[in-house]
Computed example of a mutant assay.
Amino acid sequence: MTIPRNVLRFEVLLYLSLLIDTLSAAFIARPSARVDRAAAASADTFVVMVFIFFLLLVWLAARQRKNWARWALVVALALSVLSLLGSLNSGLTPAFVIDFFSTGLAGAGLYFSFSDDAEDWFE
């Protein structure tokens, strides 16, 4: 069976959002004087595990037709929006703009997953 066009759009936009999040996480400034190497390595490991988890969710939704994975991504998007609203107090920093763009891509991708030909794709 051929994957519907809106499911492909969903998949591409979510992968692009994850790529932007990963690149922005790689350039986060860490206070080197107060954080030891073990704590920094633990934080990096956690970020990689979360990234892999979200890659798995997108793959399960787009390629394996799992509706629960799509809904888990919706919940993650809602939490991202709440986080963005909380960080709005600090102003328009470059990190905020990147996160806003990434969240917008994820929102657009999830919109496509609930529209037209994509609705019949998920079990």
Rank of each mutant, 00 (worst) to 15 (best):
L82W: 08
L105P: 00
R30W: 05
L55Q: 06
V7S: 05
L16S: 08
T2K: 14
A25K: 12
D21E: 04
S17A: 15
W68V: 06
L57Y: 03
T22L: 15
T2S: 10
T2W: 06
S42Y: 04
D117I: 08
R5N: 07
N6G: 05
V97I: 14
P94K: 05
V7A: 07
F54L: 06
L73K: 04
L55N: 09
L105Y: 03
A25R: 13
Y111N: 00
E11C: 10
S83Y: 08
L84G: 10
S87W: 11
A33M: 11
S87Y: 14
F101V: 15
L85G: 07
Y15W: 12
E119D: 04
N89R: 15
L84Y: 12
N67V: 10
G107Y: 00
F46G: 02
T22R: 05
A29N: 09
F53E: 02
M1Q: 08
L55Y: 04
V47N: 01
V58L: 02
V47L: 08
A29S: 14
L84F: 09
Q64K: 15
L85Q: 05
R63K: 13
A61M: 06
A38P: 00
A29P: 07
A39P: 00
L105E: 00
A61V: 10
A108S: 00
Y15Q: 04
L79E: 02
R37L: 06
V47D: 00
L8N: 10
T103S: 09
A40L: 09
R30L: 13
A78P: 08
F46P: 00
R34E: 02
N6R: 15
D36C: 07
